[in-house]
Write a protein that binds this DNA or RNA. Structure first.
Length: 872
RNA sequence: GGGCAAUUAGCUCAGCUGGUUAGAGCGCACGGUUCACAUCCGUGAGGUCGGGGGUUCGAGCCCCUCAUUGCCCA
């Protein structure tokens, strides 16, 4: 069954071969589990079709694949639904850029042709990202891959829109929205980033009837042209006499009122506020309170329109300068001063977004938000880590209606029709009669992705997939799209399916560079995952991402860790190599019964079963990083460093039965560890598993280990710890005294209560610290004179090293050791003498403390004796 | 202005519901070609767990406060 392994793991070859094999075998599909298996479903956050693989993808694929592979191995019908998002704005921008490079534009080619070209572009480049996800080992069901613009998903979008309209939850109206002049579309609040920037505060005089002037300050002078009032605080003694009078818009001489409104901050600027309802959110509110007119002064491209009088046609920034210059000439300006204020910029492209009045479609979101709040409050949906629940509540409790229309071409066209007399009809087809024109706007890209968990499973049709796999289970994604996406999925899912779309939201952080800086092209710190995969293979990258992150926290990507984990992969490979070359014929699978085992085997199986228990618990609580670290530690620091080394005795010197038992344990432990590790490092584990004796076709569908309490063995762990500590102590002494590593030495042991342990296992010292013979010190015998001693628990090992030892140095060493013990003993005695501790601490904690103290005291006594007999 | 994180070894990070002598990797120092692995093995140095106060028998972990950094919301 076992076969010879190559000297090293050829990850490039194996990754391709294994992935293809798994997929061809259908193991990525839930149908590979028994028909009555419990489902476990994750909807993959669909990457943008425009996307190129970055570390963020690598992170989410790693975490979700771990979840999926774990549950698959636990026998569930694991389904991971992949797909891509049409990403309205992002994609349209890319295609527009392509057209620009070709010397044309979207307006030149027209809507129909533009869409045709975008589809072509999508066919050509849209597959790239999903191909790259395969490189990461993503075990998703590609037969169920979806795209947000697929016919069926578009059906779902229309269904939802129309039904929201029928329920009165969608309205169309002229409202103040964030307008992106470059893209010439409205964008939602979430798509606007606000940041402090250096600017200028302009002070000027507002002429008021009767020849007075009201001083006003503004950061955007061009908006003066759209002013419909000047506001002062009603209690402001400087200005309250002006309330109710007429003011005149500079350069336009348009007549507007001076109003009183408590919103005005008397401390800021001059204490008087110009009100531009069509281009400022606060002013908009003021205008609504006072029934002021709203004058839009901007065209869609942010040039000024006819309302701007002489400034019509100028760009907004040019108009700002020109108007200010003209006002200066007219004697209306006072001064300018540097001023830091908050600038709204588009999340895409970074241009300054203008608040602008425009006709848009909105979703009345409060009723949906209520349900979404309840779902988390009631625990029907759990957010990991929990602290994000607060963030979620805050956003939903203060939510504003959702502007869902976009003046783009690439996206789901709003299913509405404009009648000849300005009527609106919402529906998939126009009503009977002539003159109905389709709505031009498309929907916000998040509208369709908000349906993702159920639209990908066939909704609104009651498909078998929808019935079996919905609701899904875990939504794993980045905390940066909690509002954009997660909250909307919850709202729409609850509203349209009456079920939470998933029971758990697991949020991961952002991948940053080694020093915690955001990764960006301009910072020059881009880390390309494909390069790392090329160099080290994908397993080390996955392991690094999985073990380097805790839920909700950003992860700093240190490629040094990838390299280290590449060495870990090699290390596992070499362990497997050791195991396989030492096989001879068939070996029984499974672990031998505990009573048939020697101490090292009882120990490693005890450790293994504790590991299994821990890893399972950690997986179930989403603590993947800790789980990975524990497996790593077990394999390298326990299995390889100690068990494999110790197994060489039975393997090389034992009788047939001993050899066979050792082989069986080696194979069993390796097999179990590979199973634990498989979700993290699918390729190397599968490849090795195929080389060791095993039952079943593939590791990917092998059963996840279950801890067997019969193998928990405290006594074996205690005894092995003593042996290990003694060996370490002896190595330490050898190193300190510069005894050549090749030199065999002898030891005399005072064994305390561990006589039987030494009778059976003192042979271990030969190979592990080159102590050729260990002699037990008989009762009443004196220890050797010129020797170093290593003390652990009740055991002292004397190493007669006359030629190496300087008595003074040895005494110093012992005194140091003794002092260390004294500190610990005092602390421990103090605890045990403390009534509060004895009365209140858990009994097992007290018991552990007593055992510790006993061991420390035993060691201290022996060292003290040694010192008194040897040192003056 | 409100909120949330983070602050642990030179660097990057773990540390679960408070309970052994606070851990790992990298880096560093010293030493190693013995039959799985030099992509390795052994040994070691290195931390007043950001400061201060508190709760507790017991605090890296809980509470208060301050500082620094980052993020979210307004």
């Amino acid at each position: 069954m076992a076969n010879t392994m190559a000297k090293n793991f050829d990850f490039k070859e194996a990754e391709r071969r294994l992935y293809q094999w798994w997929q061809e075998k259908g193991w990525f599909k839930p149908e590979s589990a028994p028909a009555d298996a419990e489902p476990f479903v994750i909807s993959m956050p669909p990457p943008n079709v425009t996307g190129a693989l970055h570390l963020g993808h690598a992170l989410f694929v790693t975490v979700e694949d771990i979840m999926i592979r774990f549950e698959r191995m636990r026998g569930k019908a694991a389904l991971w639904v992949p797909g891509t998002d049409h990403a309205g704005i992002a994609t349209q921008l890319q295609v527009e850029k392509m057209l620009r490079d070709q010397g044309t534009s979207r307006h030149e080619v027209g809507r129909e042709e533009f869409l045709a070209r975008t589809w072509q572009w999508k066919e050509k480049y849209g597959g790239a990202i999903t191909q790259q996800l395969r490189l990461l080992g993503a075990s998703c069901d590609w037969d169920r891959e979806r795209f947000t613009l697929d016919d069926q998903l578009s059906e779902a979008v229309q269904e939802v829109f129309i039904s929201l309209w029928d329920q009165g939850l969608i309205y169309r109206g002229t409202r103040l929205v964030n307008w992106s002049p470059g893209l010439q579309t409205a964008v939602s609040d979430l798509e606007v980033e606000r940041e402090e920037e250096a600017g200028t505060l302009y002070f000027f005089k507002y002429p008021v009837e009767g020849g007075e002037f009201l001083p006003v300050a503004t950061t955007r002078p061009e908006t003066i042209l759209g002013d419909t009032a000047v506001a002062v605080h009603p209690e402001d003694e400087r200005y309250q006499h002006l309330i109710g009078k007429k003011a005149y818009v500079p350069m336009l001489n348009r007549e507007i009122p001076v109003i009183g409104d408590a919103y005005v901050d008397r401390e800021f600027g001059t204490g008087a506020l110009k009100v531009t309802p069509a281009h400022d959110f606060n002013d908009y509110e003021i205008a609504r309170r006072h029934n002021l007119p709203m004058i839009n002064i901007l065209n869609p491209d942010a040039t000024l329109n006819a309302n701007a009088g002489a400034y019509q046609g100028m760009d907004r920034f040019a108009a700002r300068e020109k108007l200010w210059a003209d006002m200066t000439d007219a004697g209306l300006t006072i001064k300018t001063q540097p001023h830091t204020y908050i600038i709204p910029r588009s999340q895409r492209g970074g241009e300054i977004v203008e608040p602008m009045l425009s006709m848009q479609w909105f979703v009345k979101i409060q009723p949906l938000a209520e349900k979404a709040l309840d779902a988390v409050r009631s625990g029907a949906i759990q957010i990991v880590p929990e602290r994000f629940e607060k963030v979620y509540y805050h956003w939903l409790e203060n939510i504003e209606d959702w502007c869902v229309s976009r003046q783009l071409w690439w996206g789901h066209r709003i299913p509405a029709w404009h009648g000849p007399n300005g009527e609106i009809h919402v529906g998939k087809t126009p009503p009977p009669g002539d003159g109905w024109k389709p709505e031009e706007d498309v929907l916000d890209t998040w509208f369709s992705s908000g349906l993702w968990p159920f639209s990908t499973l066939g909704w609104p049709e009651q498909t078998p997939d929808l019935q079996r796999f919905y609701p899904t289970h875990v939504m794993e994604t980045g905390y940066d799209i909690l509002f954009f996406w997660v909250a909307r999925m919850i709202m729409l899912g609850l509203w349209f399916t009456d079920k939470p779309p998933f029971h758990t939201v697991y949020l991961h952080g952002l991948v940053r560079d080694k020093h915690g800086r955001k990764i960006s092209k301009t910072a020059g710190n881009v880390i390309d995952p494909t390069e790392l995969i090329e160099q080290y293979g994908v397993d080390p990258l996955r392991f690094t991402l999985a073990t380097g992150a805790t839920p909700g926290n950003d992860i700093n990507m240190d490629t040094g860790r990838v390299e280290r984990n590449w060495r870990f992969v090699n290390k596992i490979w070499q362990m497997a190599n050791f195991v396989t070359v030492n096989l001879d014929g068939d070996v029984p699978l499974g672990a031998p019964p505990p009573q048939a085992l020697d101490l090292p085997s009882r120990w490693i199986l005890s450790r293994l079963n504790r590991l299994i228990e821990n890893v399972t618990r950690l997986f179930e609580t989403y603590q993947y990083g800790e789980a990975g670290r524990q497996i790593d530690d077990f394999l390298w620091s326990e299995f390889a460093d100690w068990y494999i080394e110790m197994s060489k005795y039975p393997l090389y010197q034992g009788n047939d039965a001993e050899k066979q038992t050792a082989r069986q344990v080696l194979v069993y432990v390796l097999d179990q560890a590979l199973r634990l590790l498989h979700p993290f490092m699918p390729f190397v584990t599968e490849e090795i598993w195929q080389h060791i004796p095993h039952e079943g076709e593939a590791l990917i569908i092998a059963a996840f280990p279950i801890a067997d309490a019969r193998y928990f063995d405290d006594a074996a762990e205690t005894q092995m710890t003593i042996l290990i500590d003694l060996i370490r102590g002896i190595r330490n002494v050898r190193d300190e005294y510069k005894v050549e590593p090749g030199r065999k030495i002898t030891a005399v042991a005072s064994v305390g209560g561990f006589g039987a342990l030494f009778d059976q296992y003192s042979y271990l010292f030969a190979r592990l610290c080159n102590v050729a013979t260990v002699t037990k010190l008989g009762a009443g015998e004196n220890p050797p004179g010129e020797s170093a001693s290593v003390v652990v628990n009740e055991v002292t090992m004397y190493l007669p090293l006359a030629e190496f030892i300087d008595l003074g140095a040895e005494c110093e060493r012992l005194n140091k050791e003794s002092a260390k013990l004294t500190v610990q003993i005092e602390k421990s005695r103090g605890m045990l003498a403390n009534e509060g501790f004895i009365n209140r601490a858990q009994p097992d904690v007290i018991e552990r403390e007593r055992a510790k103290l006993a061991s420390l005291e035993a060691s201290a006594a022996q060292i003290a004796e040694r010192i008194s007999s040897m040192c003056k």
